[in-house]
Deep mutational scan, measured.
Amino acid sequence: ESETFDVELTKNVQGLGITIAGYIGDKKLEPSGIFVKSITKSSAVEHDGRIQIGDQIIAVDGTNLQGFTNQQAVEVLRHTGQTVLLTLMRRG
């Protein structure tokens, strides 16, 4: 069981404050995608409180990250504006 949710964030001096990890899993058993690996102290993400380590980032400002490499996803996140809309999925 999984839930998908949107989080809109405004960057602070730390930026968004997440590091991400790309993961290619076994299609049947484990998900592939871009996941939140860590959250920086005092960052926008930590202050917001809704995003957790292990959440999958589905889209950034409407750009679907399906099939993106870790590096491609980093580039998408790097080129966002001051306000960012993240679409995430959390597995229950």
Results as ranks from 00 to 15, higher is better:
Leu65Ser: 03
Gly25Glu: 12
Gly25Val: 09
Leu16Pro: 03
Asp48His: 07
Leu88Pro: 01
Thr69Asn: 08
Ile34Asn: 04
Val76Tyr: 10
Glu8Asp: 06
Gly54Glu: 01
Gln82Arg: 12
Leu9Gly: 03
Lys37Arg: 09
Ile24Met: 13
Thr19Ala: 08
Leu29Met: 15
Gln14Arg: 13
Leu88Phe: 08
Asp61Asn: 12
Glu75Ala: 09
Val45Cys: 14
Gln66Thr: 11
Gln82Ala: 10
Gly81Cys: 02
Thr87Leu: 02
Gly22Trp: 12
Leu77Cys: 01
Asp6Glu: 15
Gln14His: 14
Ile58Thr: 06
Gln56Asp: 03
Ile34Glu: 01
Ser42Arg: 13
Met89Ala: 11
Asp6Ile: 09
Asp26Leu: 08
Gln71Tyr: 07
Gly15Leu: 04
Ile51Ala: 01
Gln72Ile: 03
Glu1Ala: 09
Gly49Phe: 04
Thr40Ile: 11
Ala44Ser: 13
Gln14Thr: 12
Asp6Pro: 02
Val7Phe: 04
Ile51Arg: 02
Lys28Thr: 13
Glu1Asp: 15
Leu29Asn: 15
Gly22Asn: 15
Gln82Phe: 03
Lys11Asn: 10
Val60Cys: 08
Ala44Cys: 12
Thr10Tyr: 08
Val7Cys: 10
Ile51Ser: 02
Thr10Asn: 11
Glu46Leu: 07
Thr4Gln: 07
Lys37Cys: 06
Phe35Gln: 07
Phe68Trp: 06
Gly49Ala: 06
Lys11Pro: 06
Thr40Trp: 07
Gly67Pro: 05
Gln56Cys: 05
Tyr23Ser: 13
Glu1Tyr: 15
Gly81Glu: 07
Thr19Glu: 14
Lys41His: 09
Gln66Cys: 11
Gly81Phe: 01
Lys28Asp: 15
Asp55Tyr: 01
Glu3Gly: 11
Gly17Leu: 00
Gly25Cys: 15
Val45Asp: 07
Glu75Pro: 01
Lys27Ile: 08
Lys27Val: 09
Asn12Lys: 08
Asp55Trp: 01
Leu77Tyr: 04
Gln14Gly: 13
Gly25Arg: 10
Ser42Phe: 12
Asp55Arg: 00
Lys11Ser: 07
Gly22Ile: 06
Ile24Phe: 12
Glu75Asn: 10
Ile51His: 00
Lys27Arg: 11
Phe5Pro: 01
Gly92Asp: 11
Gln71Ser: 11
Thr87Asn: 03
Ile24Trp: 12
Gly25Thr: 13
Gly17Ala: 03
Ile53Gly: 03
Val76Met: 15
Val84Tyr: 04
Met89Gln: 14
Leu16Ala: 04
